[in-house]
Amino acid sequence: GTTVVVDVIRGTPEFPNNTIEDFVVARADGSAVFLLANVVDDLDMGITHVIRGEEHLPNTPKQQLLWAALGAAPPVWAHVPVIVNEKRQKLSKRRDKVALESYRAEGYLPAAMRNYLMLLGWAPPGDEEIVPFSTIEASFRLEDVKPSPAFFDEKKLRAFNGEYIRALSVDEFTAACEPWLAPATEAPSEQAAQGQGQGGDDWGVPAAPWPAERFSPEVFAALAPLAQTRLSVLSEIVPMVDFAFLPEAPIDEASWAKAMKGPARELLAEVAEAYTHVDWDEDSLREALVKIGEGHGLKLGKAQAPVRVAVTGRSVGLPLFESLTVLGREATLTRLRRAVARLDAAHSTA
């Protein structure tokens, strides 16, 4: 005859009984093997639905025969699709990044991860994919799960996470960032550990690179709204704000080499002179740099580059003039003058 498996996701696959071997249910010492132990355990626990990966489908006709032999109706079967990587290989803990702890240490929010995982093989009704879990709970049906393999797309997960980060209030965002802001001698607050599912050295989060005494919650609070719209994962907060808490700009040499060309030395010297007297607000700082840039035939975007690298150490980061106002006049001027001195030293050596 034929054993028919009624599967919520895969329909009614049929297995001719003459293709099923006379399978073992007990070892020589009398102990039960998995197939029998699993069925008896499910019967004992009153299991009504068995939801598992599709790789277990070949076991199902054997287990269904055992359910029948024990005088019981089989459970509802649902074999969900496997999750594959970008090479369309089944995800493997030996080869792929599959541990939730590693994603947590990078700064993925639990709600974003949960939302994304729910979309592997299923989708909520409508066009929206980023939806509250209450919506997922209300609309999820096993019957709607697709049988084809689901691609775990980390780029899409990062995009999801960025949306969830931007949806946080500023206070929630600040608390969520705390594990990445703590120097080696400090631990994140209980609010960070519990409020956003973040917390501490057990996650493998590296210590912040600045000394504890240089970190200022007030300064970070001023930078947080600027950073929140630019993050995909929370760990990216460190290179965005470290310039404000390190004694000197953390110079990225590739950015330096790219920005410090042409009239960079003269422009930085003129900016340092202008910023000595200008009102310390965003508009005044911008207007001064625009004027100096025009004097060198540069539009603002080009004129900003050497100033940004001299002050923040990188060619990409938070809005420049807002960052300068937070950093302050003294620190900004010191870094501009150090950049000029470095360019002079390089020129004299050459």
Rank of each mutant, 00 (worst) to 15 (best):
P125Y: 03
F152Q: 02
E294C: 11
W67V: 12
N85W: 04
G162E: 04
D252M: 06
A254S: 14
R338P: 10
H56D: 13
R114A: 11
L318C: 06
F15M: 08
T3A: 08
T332V: 11
S31I: 11
D242E: 15
F140Q: 05
V326P: 04
L91S: 03
I83T: 08
H277I: 14
K156M: 13
K93A: 09
A222R: 14
V5Q: 04
E14P: 03
R286G: 10
M240F: 14
A37D: 15
S284Q: 09
P306A: 06
R158T: 10
L43A: 04
P217Y: 15
E54W: 12
E253A: 09
S92R: 08
A345W: 09
L157T: 03
L120H: 03
S323N: 04
W180G: 03
K302C: 07
A212Y: 11
V309N: 00
G197P: 02
T48V: 12
G126S: 04
H56R: 10
D41T: 07
D29Q: 06
E330A: 13
D201R: 15
L157K: 02
R342M: 07
P125H: 05
S92M: 09
L70D: 07
L66K: 01
N115T: 09
A221I: 05
A159T: 14
R166M: 03
R52A: 01
S284A: 15
D201H: 12
G262A: 07
A221F: 08
Y275F: 14
S315D: 13
A224C: 12
K156R: 15
A68Q: 15
Q228K: 15
V309C: 01
L117A: 11
L318A: 08
M118H: 07
Q63G: 08
S148H: 13
R338Q: 14
V6P: 00
E143T: 13
P61S: 10
L320A: 07
E129N: 14
T349A: 15
R141S: 11
F215P: 04
A303N: 05
V40C: 06
V25W: 06
L336C: 05
D171G: 11
G121W: 05
L267P: 01
S102P: 08
P211C: 08
A26C: 09
A69S: 13
E178P: 01
A37L: 03
P209K: 02
V311I: 10
P81Y: 12
V80G: 01
E163R: 12
F34E: 15
A339W: 00
L234D: 10
A303R: 02
L57D: 05
L246T: 03
Q89W: 14
L289P: 00
F245E: 03
P179F: 00
Q228I: 05
I292G: 01
I20C: 03
E55Y: 11
F23D: 14
V5E: 07
A310Y: 00
E186M: 11
V271P: 00
A112T: 04
D22W: 09
L35H: 02
N115E: 09
A274K: 06
T2N: 07
L267Q: 03
L117I: 11
A249H: 02
F133T: 07
E322S: 14
E172S: 05
L70E: 05
W210N: 11
A187P: 04
I9K: 01
E218M: 09
